[in-house]
C-alpha cells in the first residue's frame, strides 16, 4: 500500500521548517523519522498534502547537560534518533531511564529512524518515550513564529494524538531533570517483544507515568500522592489506575488494563527501589 500523493519539502533549518509550516498551513505535516506518520499514510488514515522533511536539520541531534548543580537539566535535541539516545553516554549517566526506554521502542530498524521529537509530537498514548518523559518531569521546548516556549510535560499531551502544540510550531528539544543514581523502573507489557505496550509504567523519584491507560500518557497521581504520604509500594501501586480511563481492544479490556496498571506500577516501583 502506498500514500496518497503529496508535495515534499526538504528543509535545512528550524527557521525554514517554520516558514514552510506557515506557508502550507494545516495540510502540512512534519516528517522526521517517519515511522509513525508513513505507516498511517500508507493505510490512508492520514492524507497530508505537504510533507516537510526536517530530518536534514543536523543541529537538532544532541544530548547535553545544561547548567550545573541540582537545577541542571539534560537537553535532548528533537531530532535525536532512538538508537542514538539508547547509546548516548551523557544520557546513560545523567538520566538512565531514557536510554533504556529508547532501546525498548519498536525494533532496531525503527530505532534507527525514529526520533524523540517525532514520538513526542505524535502523542500516541501507547508510546514508550513520552511515558518516560512524563515520569521524569521537565519540559517540551517548542519553536514557532513567535519564538521558543517551554511547556511542562504534564501539560503537553492533551489527548489522543493531541498536544498543546500549535499547528505552526515544532518540537525542538526535550528537557528533563538529571536523575543520576536515583533508582528507576520501566515495565512494558506486550504480547510480543516489539509490540506497542498494552500498558507500560515508568517510575522514577516518586513519580509514575502510564502508557495506554487514557487518551494520552498519564501520571498515576493517586499512587504518587500515596507514596508521598509514606504508603508502601504495594499499597500505593493498588491506586495506580485511579483517575485513568483505559480503552478496550483485542488484547485487553478495561478491567484487565487496570489490573496491569497496578501490577506494572508495583513492579516498576520495586525495581526503582531496588527491591
Amino acid at each position: 500500500m502506498i500514500p496518497s500523493p503529496f508535495e515534499y519539502v526538504k528543509v535545512r533549518s528550524v527557521d525554514e521548517a517554520l516558514a514552510a509550516l506557515t506557508e502550507h498551513g494545516e495540510d502540512a505535516k512534519l516528517l522526521a523519522g517517519g515511522h509513525s506518520l508513513l505507516p498511517i499514510m500508507k493505510l490512508r488514515l492520514a492524507i497530508p498534502t505537504v510533507l516537510i522533511d526536517i530530518s536534514g536539520i543536523s543541529d537538532l541531534s544532541y544530548v547535553r547537560v545544561d547548567g550545573d548543580g541540582p537545577d541542571a537539566m539534560v537537553a535532548i535535541g528533537a531530532g535525536t534518533r532512538h538508537f542514538e539516545l539508547e547509546r548516548d553516554d551523557v544520557a546513560r549517566t545523567e538520566v538512565p531511564l531514557l536510554p533504556h526506554v529508547a532501546g525498548r521502542v519498536g525494533d532496531p530498524q525503527v530505532r534507527h529512524r525514529g526520533t524523540i521529537g517525532g514520538t513526542t509530537a505524535h502523542s500516541d498514548p501507547a508510546s514508550d518515550l513520552p511515558t518516560a518523559l512524563l515520569a521524569l518531569g521537565g519540559t517540551v521546548v517548542l519553536q514557532g513564529p513567535g519564538g521558543r516556549r517551554e511547556v511542562p510535560v504534564t501539560e503537553f499531551w492533551t489527548g489522543f494524538f493531541e498536544t498543546a502544540m500549535s499547528p505552526d510550531e515544532m518540537v525542538v528539544e526535550l528537557r528533563v531533570p538529571r536523575t543520576g543514581s536515583i533508582g528507576w523502573g520501566y515495565e512494558k507489557f506486550t504480547r510480543r517483544e516489539n509490540d506497542w505496550p498494552i500498558v507500560a509504567a515508568a517510575a522514577v523519584d516518586g513519580r509514575v507515568a502510564l502508557a495506554n491507560m487514557a487518551g494520552s500518557v498519564v501520571r498515576a497521581t493517586a499512587t504518587e500522592e500515596a507514596l508521598a504520604r509514606g504508603a508502601s509500594i504495594a499499597e500505593a501501586a493498588e491506586l495506580a489506575d485511579q483517575g485513568t480511563s483505559p480503552g478496550a481492544d483485542m488484547h485487553a479490556d478495561q478491567e484487565y488494563r487496570r489490573h496491569l496498571a497496578r501490577l506494572l506500577t508495583r513492579r516498576a516501583l520495586e525495581t526503582a527501589a531496588g527491591v
Binding site: R191, I198, H251, A252, D253, Y256, H259
Partner: peptide, 8 residues
C-alpha cells in the same frame, strides 16, 4: 492462551 484469558 492470551495473558488476559489466562489471568481471567
Amino acid at each position: 492462551a492470551t495473558p488476559m484469558r489466562v489471568w481471567r
